[in-house]
Design a protein around this nucleic acid. Structure first.
Lengths: 218, 218
DNA sequence: ACTAATATTTAGTTTTGTCTAAATATTAGT
DNA sequence: ACTAATATTTAGACAAAACTAAATATTAGT
């Protein structure tokens, strides 16, 4: 697969939400920041190669073979993201662009060894699952902190309210996107929560909790 | 710079032995496993970009700007080689192909952090020096073990005699290409040497020593 | 069901990097 | 210095991946 072909495969995979939905030429064009006519050309080529199913005017979906390739790319991308954050001190939001390049490196041994070096991580810094070598992975969902059962652990991936006071609160309490949060206990009286974040235990109000989103394995 | 342009720059750099010699079109073609006419085309383009000096029929050399690019590529290549060997347990001879791909990844932060993560190594697994961010590096030379001064440390990079009995000896004594060797002391009587290799101290005859090459900083 | 709006494809061009074959320049041998 | 061998460049073509503009198909609104 060429670099460009791999990019198309990934775009089709992501637009298909991992469920292999049929996606439109235009959607792919928008996702890839290119023109629909370019997509038609490439999609024909990928169809000839047995990577996608394509009927003119009827959209495109990945074949089984195409899905394998897509999962392998997602695996590589997410493993590299873990590497960048864990080993090279990149922050949550700096990794994507570099991982986008690294995912195209071709070497099976490289990825096997990287996986091992990182301790076989299950999720990337955004809380998204890392497919196994065979392409298996757990689905994850996004929930606000106050709607998950006690004992749930997940990765902080977003806020509902992004007003300056709220962001200031997060900063003061050293809560950042990408942090792993463990929900310990709920105070019955006011619905406030005790949570563990980066080795320290803190107490947050129900209102704060409802504004924080966690990504957890479904 | 495109991937292909970078490959040409590296080829011209290596053929120029790092001393910026003028190299022939044919030499570049052979090095890159391509045709001389393709080289002519590319070299014209690189000349327009200010990367090389080119006079038709007179060969090509890197400009100052071109040398900077070449050194940055060499730096990236060698840092990745160290990473592959030290962190991912690749062996000495498996790293080149993968590093060849990794060296094209574009991210200054990536390389800065990788350098830091590896502890600012001075040489790669083949004993070749790693240019600093500014492009400075120490020259290295290859010498047989019995012609270096006591206290010299270097990387084992080759053998003169590659007969099966000699290779068997190396294997038995756990001496492998890529190992760091420190020459401790010479026995005056027979010229045999005491050397340190991977935490263990061993004693080798002068004949063995003369068959082993070390890469040391000049 | 018909038309207008939208989506998609086709046809023809461009750019990058390569190739082959032919032309031209350089070098070496006498 | 001349010719033969070799090296290099030029010209023209091709494949990949993109684009623009025009043509065609689909869909939605009435």
């Amino acid at each position: 697969m060429t670099l460009s072909e791999e990019d198309y495969i990934k775009a089709i995979y992501h637009l298909g939400k991992g469920e292999n939905l049929t996606v439109s030429t235009n959607a792919v064009a928008e996702q890839m920041d290119t023109k629909p006519s370019s997509v038609t050309d490439m999609v024909k080529k990928l169809s000839d190669k047995g990577v996608v199913n394509y009927k003119p005017y009827k959209g495109v979906s990945l074949t089984g073979y195409g899905q394998k390739i897509a999962l392998s790319l997602v695996r590589k991308h997410r493993l590299w993201e873990v590497f960048l954050v864990e080993k090279l001190d990149f922050s949550w939001d700096e990794v994507h662009e570099v991982a986008e390049q690294l995912e195209h490196i071709k070497s099976e041994k490289l990825i096997d060894q990287l996986d091992k070096h990182l301790g076989y991580p299950q999720v990337d810094p955004h809380g998204d699952p890392i497919p196994s070598k065979k392409g298996e992975f757990k689905k994850t969902i996004k929930k606000s902190l106050n709607e998950v059962p006690m004992g749930t652990s997940g990765i902080c991936v977003g806020v509902k309210d992004s007003s300056p006071p709220f962001l200031k609160f997060l900063d003061k309490n050293k809560i950042a996107l990408g942090d792993t949060i463990l929900v310990l206990e709920k105070e019955e009286f006011d619905g406030s929560l005790y949570i563990r974040i980066k080795e320290s235990k803190i107490h947050i109000s129900n209102q704060i909790a409802s504004n924080l989103y966690l990504k957890i394995t479904a």
